[in-house]
Design a protein around this nucleic acid. Structure first.
Lengths: 232, 232
DNA sequence: GTCGGTAGTTGAACACGTTCAAGAAGGGCG
DNA sequence: CGCCCTTCTTGAACGTGTTCAACTACCGAC
């Protein structure tokens, strides 16, 4: 229950609902404390106190402590898109484009490695609205998938016609895998995740190129059929 | 802190420490309630009450509510091993052996799909001792990896010499992937997970066979090098 | 200007996981 | 039997996320 209010934010209405300021204040305070102390160590009481509001007020805007995470989620996606822009402008070949966008994603997340790691557990719960697969986060998810669509459309790569429509989502899935690795990555500066990207991208690149080969056509088909079956 | 006591259970000493009975009573009660009500809906107070002990007593044996999950974890692994035995006795080819063992794993987990799903989130947290990658669960993990080792050693498959030592762990990783899909699988009876297994196993089978081809040797090497780099 | 309704705000209260100081039970040893 | 030490057990108390009935602030309508 406890719906997010700002249904009014349908389109550009500058001075929207009265509480918009409070909403942002609470969100920003929460993000700051998460970064400073970590997710578990940040209490709702602390957020409310630092923001100068009552505890219940935070719950008026955000259904739960977990919902504050979704805010981080959306914010990161926007930053990722922005950080990817130079890469999309600069690179033309598929491989470098993909690598650049993946690196940009990790760049954006890196300052939050400490607390982001702990909260991705919540994202893993299927019933949670925070799951990257859930309906509730379909907005940021679609934006992310679209970003990988741009990786593809802007590139010079020739892709199998059947594979092409599926590929953006598959690349996004691979990105989720990279993030899963990154979350568990204890190497200093998460350098291993960087190695993962640099090592895996050429393989993906080659695999995509191979998908057009006549000999491999049946395999490509088989894989794509399986994927189509497994999608919900 | 709060170590699990029964260090004494090194080998077969039948009437071990005094509290062993209590320990099992609490564990069994917890498992029953988890199945009946789900993980989140089962309170520690309820477990204690149903087991007829004080709340604090449960914490004497299990460091936290999450630690009770690890018990489920270990128990499932043992059941999986047992359920896989007929398959390993019956099948000789790599593909059917792998498929059989994967299906056996899902068979064991199926009755707990409802609550297992919610608790796998805890397993996803890197800092948690419950993570399948953590040191604390290295016991069950190694047992699981060994099981996939048996899938391989007992089979007639010819495997690339360099790939062979890595393969059991890779198969286990794939199994983790299957479980991740299963956790999110909302299809009735989780039939899609079954389709995933039946669809993916032939592909894996073919891939393993291809790894021996001279033409693909460089790629195989490249992949294996990457994996070796990424292991912690 | 006042009235009414919506949007926003409050903080005490609840249920939960967890901790801990206190005690009980058991057993080896004189 | 009495002593001591380890193992086990207790339940009140703490801090947490969350709820909710009550209250206030604002704004349009008359």
């Amino acid at each position: 229950m406890t719906e997010q209010p700002a249904q009014t934010t349908t389109a550009g209405d500058p001075a929207t609902a009265r509480g918009e300021q409070t909403r942002q204040l609470i969100r920003d305070t929460a993000m700051r404390l998460f970064r400073e102390r970590g997710y578990a160590q940040t209490t709702m009481r602390a957020i409310a106190q630092e923001a100068g509001v009552a505890v219940g007020n935070a719950y008026y805007y955000f259904g739960s402590k977990d919902h504050l995470i979704q805010e981080f989620y959306a914010q990161s996606q926007v930053e990722h898109r922005a950080a990817a822009q130079p890469v999309l402008d600069r690179e033309e070949a598929f491989g470098p484009r993909l690598a650049g966008v993946l690196h940009a994603g990790i760049d954006v997340l890196t300052p939050s490695h400490g607390f982001a790691a702990t909260f991705f557990k919540t994202a893993a719960e299927p019933t949670s609205p925070l799951s990257p697969f859930s309906a509730e986060s379909s907005g940021p998810r679609q934006a992310a998938i679209d970003l990988f669509g741009e990786v593809l459309t802007g590139s010079t790569a020739k892709v199998d016609a059947e594979l092409r429509p599926q590929l953006p989502e598959l690349l996004w899935l691979a990105y989720m895998g990279v993030i899963l690795y990154w979350v568990h990555d204890r190497s200093p500066g998460q350098t291993k995740t960087r190695q993962l990207i640099d090592g895996a991208v050429p393989l993906v690149d080659r695999l995509v190129a191979l998908s057009r080969l006549r000999v491999l056509r049946p395999v490509t088909r088989q894989v794509l059929d399986l994927i189509r079956t497994l999608r919900h």
